[in-house]
Design a protein around this nucleic acid. Structure first.
Lengths: 209, 209
DNA sequence: TGCCAGCATTGAAATTTTTCAATGTGATTA
DNA sequence: TAATCACATTGAAAAATTTCAATGCTGGCA
């Protein structure tokens, strides 16, 4: 939670509604171009942040999960450059900008917490570039699976559709499918029920550092 | 400049050395793994921020130019995940973390300035993903050339080596070369002396939105 | 001035990825 | 239970990209 760093007294200053909201899979939290008076912290589930190109291509630029902040970009009042769509069941906490602003003035701890979030988002964006858009398609799929696996608390993890995986890696749906099918044949990937899956991390790591 | 938002009185509080430094082309400002007690603002020139993968591949994740901040990542005290290398002649202003910290406490304006920088870096990282790692190699090269052109104050702009362009786009040196050579034959790209070049933006835009 | 070193360009063959068109498969619903 | 829908998988051919090996070009240096 964004506010985990704050003391209780800080919360008492909040006189604006902070809502907990739940979304089913595939829901739009916000769209590209939306005015954004809120920031969202993800309490559980996975959210894809994507951008559309003028030519109609869509690219997923980041996955947000528990503890991540969505809508940071728009703290400046600009409309969102992204759309945020849930992949599975998602719970968020919706915080009005006004709350952030007033807390920002009074509590240095929030400042620091916000800084840390920026930092995390940036470093995630960069490692996305280095790890998920470099190498051939097998390597990219392997790295994505390991990232999803790492992100998960669980032994299993959420396996997106091949189309979404393609949009994350910059390759076609079919190419992703060919690779995941091969991994499955090798027993490196075991798709389970409900869009979840398990991987043999050692084997993948060994073959695709 | 980072401090352009600050009033003069704020500067008087600074009792630490802030140095202006100049680098020739190809100089290392800092390396991956370096402890980083500084933040750098770029006063002029172009800097590449890159990351190495364990397998030896290198990927350029961002270009920094006038007004950008390098070393933001390490405000938390962690060693740098990046290396920053100059492409041309570069002037930077090197600011100790301690200065940032003490200003941060006292001057809300600096806070805001820093936030804006984070925001800019993040949005740049994301559009890097969407625009520079999507589409075929001609499209990517075209987009990179337009980005370099936009960045430049000048009518001409700095044209990196084919190898660096490849590391930005996730394609091989030779592939980039084939594309730039073709663009040159079409008169869409005109390489000039001293690593500089000119493009026919209309023609490129038309062919590669 | 001429030579060198370091890029850049080119070509052909190998490989990878995309494209396009079927064909599976599993979960949900009638 | 059967029908249906949304994805996933597969295969073959086309297209794009990489690889590898030469060959050009140019600016700096002896």
């Amino acid at each position: 939670m964004l506010f985990s760093d704050l003391q209780h007294e800080d919360f008492d200053r909040i006189h604006h509604p902070i809502d907990d909201i739940e979304y089913g899979p595939g829901s739009h939290i916000y769209m590209q171009g939306d005015a954004m008076p809120f920031v969202y912290t993800i309490r559980s589930g996975l959210v894809k942040l994507s951008q559309h190109l003028p030519n109609g291509d869509t690219r997923i630029v980041r996955l947000l999960r528990q503890g991540d902040l969505a809508g940071l970009e728009s703290l400046n009042g600009q409309p969102s450059e992204y759309e945020a769509i849930t992949l599975d069941h998602v719970r968020v906490c919706r915080i009005p900008h006004s709350v952030i602003e007033s807390l920002r003035r009074d509590t240095p701890r929030l400042h620091d917490a916000l800084m840390k979030r920026w930092q995390k988002a940036l470093s995630s964006a960069d490692s996305w570039i280095t790890r998920l858009t470099t190498g051939n398609s097998k390597t990219r799929v392997a790295r994505l699976l390991m990232l999803l696996d790492n992100n998960s608390e669980d032994d299993s993890f959420f396996l997106p559709t091949r189309e979404d995986m393609g949009a994350m890696l910059g390759v076609t749906t079919e190419s992703v499918s060919k690779v995941t099918a091969e991994f499955t044949r090798n027993n490196w990937l075991r798709p389970l029920a409900q869009h979840r899956a398990w991987i043999d991390s050692e084997a993948l790591e060994e073959n695709f550092e």
